[in-house]
Amino acid sequence: MLLEISSLMIPGMITEVIHMGERIITFSQALCEGVLEEMLRDERVITYGEDIAKQGGIFGAYKCLLGKVGDRIFDTPISEEVIYGSALGAAMAGMIPVVEFHFADFLFTGITAITNQIMKMRYMTGGQVSLPIVLRGPDGVAKSAAAQHSQSIETIFMHVPGIKVVVPSTPYDAKGLIKSSIRDPDPIIFFEHKALYKIRGPVPEEEYFIPLGKAHIKREGADVTVIATSRMVHEAVKAAEQLSKEGIEVEVVDLRTLVPWDRDTVIKSVKKTGRAVVAHETWRRAGWGAEIASTIYEELFDRLEAPIQRVGARNVPHPFSPPLEQFMIPKVEDIVDAVKRTL
């Protein structure tokens, strides 16, 4: 499936404060730069998947690699189980595979190689081997991509133990987190929201890393904490700006990684505000927000001023027709309403 990238642009998504003289690049460029730097640094890093080596990926996220890393980028047959499973074998035999999953939806077509093999091998063997594997690729709602090209399934990988889950929201984070992921000795699944590839933001020329498990407070506020990831961070910031006009100050916490997730930052924030909303694009029912909410209840039950609210997609597959899709996915208004329900 080919998508017109410009059709995925969501206006007004720049949430970083941009200073004079800073380099501004897209999420795609930042991500690609991170992969390229690591490939040039370490010959063991190889990258493969469907539609990446000739065209730079279905959304162009890999264009910067073309012609720069020789045969260490290559296209594969459409064979997801062996794409993911071979990453495990390659890692066990000393390589650092960075494998593209094309669409998060197609993780399901090869998922056994991930959940039954990659995520269990180190544990099953009693720690005999470290597995530096990165599975990366697009997820999330695009415009009318319908039920098999729109899903966000990060919760599944948070639920089954054995992989670290990364869900960046900005160009800066994409680069810092992909570099940390490639250098990490354990398996990582890295979700890039389709609607974020074209957003722009400041990314320094100098090398930097973002550690896994460190949330980022996008916006400070004293009244309500909104915990989000990926595209929903941008929606949460927009909701916060609207609410600010009504005198409600929202603190937006971008978790950035779900395994591990930054419990300390979340607890500290909710201690301050006494109110919390969790917001994700994946389905509301048993979405990862429920885990965060439960943890907050366990730790701060007597400090909460109101029940925690959850924002997520309606519990149906992604419909095709634009009004149906818009109804199904969570939006800024849903976050605004959820925040108000805590007040």
Binding site: I46, V82, L88, G89, M92, M121
Partner: peptide, 21 residues
């Protein structure tokens, strides 16, 4: 590179080791 509880589970792993080689 492991016994495997899944029928054919070792095949993709073997192919990956082959890639590394």
């Amino acid at each position: 590179l492991g016994a495997n509880g899944e029928v054919a589970g070792g095949i993709p792993i073997a192919v990956g080791a082959g890639l590394a080689v």
